[in-house]
Write a protein that binds this DNA or RNA. Structure first.
Length: 455
RNA sequence: GAGGGCGUAGCUCAGUAGGUUAGAGCGACAGUUUGUGGCACUGUAGGUCGUGGGUUCGAGACCCAUCGUUCUCCCCA
């Protein structure tokens, strides 16, 4: 028997951790509900072809695939061998695998909308809090199983949805007391840039290069652009684009000059301005930062895109989202525009922990420990305890008659603030001794008054 | 997919240029006269040194492989 272990990139959560995670979930959930979003849950596995091809080449490689059952069936040997050959050649084959663990919550949601659009009332606003799985190499802030909290609106083109979703971000992070910056860009701006220098078909090469700016620096980006066949003149435009700086308004002005009369550029800027100006009136614009180098990997985005960064923390993005104008057409139902955001709970947890931002009051453990002083006494004490439990006070009784020392230590280790002692004397006097472990104060309380005692 | 670090008691780690029976702190358990904890003292248990090879008279230490873990890059939440 080998030592038990956990699959790579997965974790157990102990009591204290679960409570802190619940605090994050509940905070986000209550904000979602306040904004009129309703819950949805989908299965942890989807058909493989629902997921494949939606996350780009890199993403497809990170999907956890589930091996089919019955591969040991000798009668299907030939078929299975053929299937394996295809899998080994890098293709998917339904004989070997036809299901996979979900990689995010957006695509399963799109699949749900495509399947149920006849019954849904649009605009349809749903939130979803569930784990997702990625076959990534685990490292800091990166797990193979982690939770996302998504809110999406489908069936509406209005930018008011973007405004609303940004407000959700701001409200949730304010409640969590986590200082953040929300970066915004627009795919249309990136498209406009591509059209101005090199053409639309270079959009992907261009965004990949731009995205690397803060990691590898301009010289290397320039080199990469050169390799991808961008002319000197085009490279200069990109350089000008990347050098845009200042306040949001200043950046937008510089961008407008650079992109000139390009239709996509103008539209992209207009949308960005709309959302920014809306949030000037809510006061939330102080969190919003126009960042034209923001690209985002998922290739289904078509409009405004967002990414949330925790301030002063060594951590990748803790949330992201954007507009996708035609996601359901991947599943045969065209013309349902959508926009959504996602919270990365596990990373938010790591940042809150690192910065010590969890409130101290979320520890919801036992309030009162009843000492066990023997069979007869325990029976009397148990009846008293049950009354407190009826009043929703968390109580427990030490399960065996042990020395005081031991029972005290148990209370201490579990962080139980109060103990109640009911021994032979107390039973005959119909009262109990209540001791507060922090202060050491001990008082006698009659059984009939116990219910009104404030612990 | 590429590249580093680290695997010694339940936990955190020591372990000198390879040399006898592998150590400490914390934790656990027991006790210091069996109704009042935190402190202190005493004692007890607990290790195939990740695994498998190799070098050597001799390996926890050196070499190779393998597994696990962690971090960076890629990409992402």
């Amino acid at each position: 028997m080998s030592k038990p272990s956990l699959p790579q990139g997965t974790r157990d959560f102990n009591a204290a951790t679960v409570q802190k995670r619940q605090y994050i979930f509940q905070t986000i959930r209550s904000v979602f509900e306040t904004y009129g979003f309703q819950p949805l849950e989908t299965p942890s596995m989807e058909n493989l072809d629902t997921l494949m091809g939606k996350y780009g080449e890199e993403g497809d490689k990170l999907i956890f695939k589930i091996l089919n059952n019955g591969l040991d069936n000798p009668q299907k040997r030939a078929q299975i061998d053929e299937g394996w050959d295809k899998v080994i050649a890098g293709k998917n084959n339904a004989t070997i695998t036809e299901r996979a663990l979900r990689y995010d919550l957006t695509i399963p949601f799109a699949r749900y909308v495509a399947m149920n659009h006849g019954q849904l009332t649009f605009p349809f606003k749903r939130y979803q809090i569930q784990p997702v799985w990625r076959a990534d190499r685990p490292q800091k802030g990166r797990y193979r199983e982690f939770y996302q909290c998504d809110a999406d609106v489908v069936g509406s083109d209005s930018l008011l949805n973007e405004v609303d979703l940004l407000a959700i971000y701001v409200t949730a992070f304010e409640k969590l007391k986590l200082p953040v910056e929300i970066k915004m860009n627009n795919r249309k701006i990136l498209l406009g840039l591509a059209q101005v220098c090199g053409g639309e078909e270079k959009l992907i090469d261009l965004t990949i290069a731009i995205d690397k700016l803060d990691k590898i620096g301009w010289e290397k980006v320039k080199e990469e652009l050169n390799n991808k066949g961008f002319s000197t003149q085009q490279q200069e435009i990109v350089e000008g684009y990347l050098n845009i700086s200042g306040t949001n308004d200043e950046k937008i002005n510089q961008l407008a000059n650079l992109l000139g009369e390009n239709e996509n550029g103008k539209k992209g800027i207009e949308e960005l301005q709309y959302v920014l100006s809306y949030h000037q009136s809510t006061g939330m614009d102080k969190y919003l930062v126009a960042d034209f180098t923001l690209a985002r990997g998922l290739n289904y985005y078509t409009g405004l895109i967002f990414e949330v960064k925790a301030m002063d923390a060594q951590m990748g993005s803790i949330g992201g989202g954007g507009r996708y104008n035609d996601l359901t057409s991947l599943f045969g139902v065209p013309n349902i525009p959508g926009v959504g955001i996602s919270f990365g709970v596990d990373r938010i947890y790591d940042v809150l922990e690192e910065k010590n931002l969890f409130p101290t009051s979320i520890d919801q453990g036992t309030q009162v420990l009843f000492f066990n002083l023997g069979e007869a006494e325990a029976k009397v004490a148990y009846a008293q305890m049950m009354q407190l439990r009826d009043k929703k006070i968390a109580c427990e009784m030490y399960p065996e008659k042990s020395k005081f020392d031991k029972q005290f230590k148990y209370a201490e280790k579990k962080g139980i603030p109060n103990i109640v002692i009911i021994g032979a004397d107390e039973v005959s006097n119909q009262n109990c001794s209540i001791k507060n472990l922090a202060t050491g104060q001990q008082t006698n309380v009659a059984f009939k008054d116990l219910l009104n005692y404030s612990f």
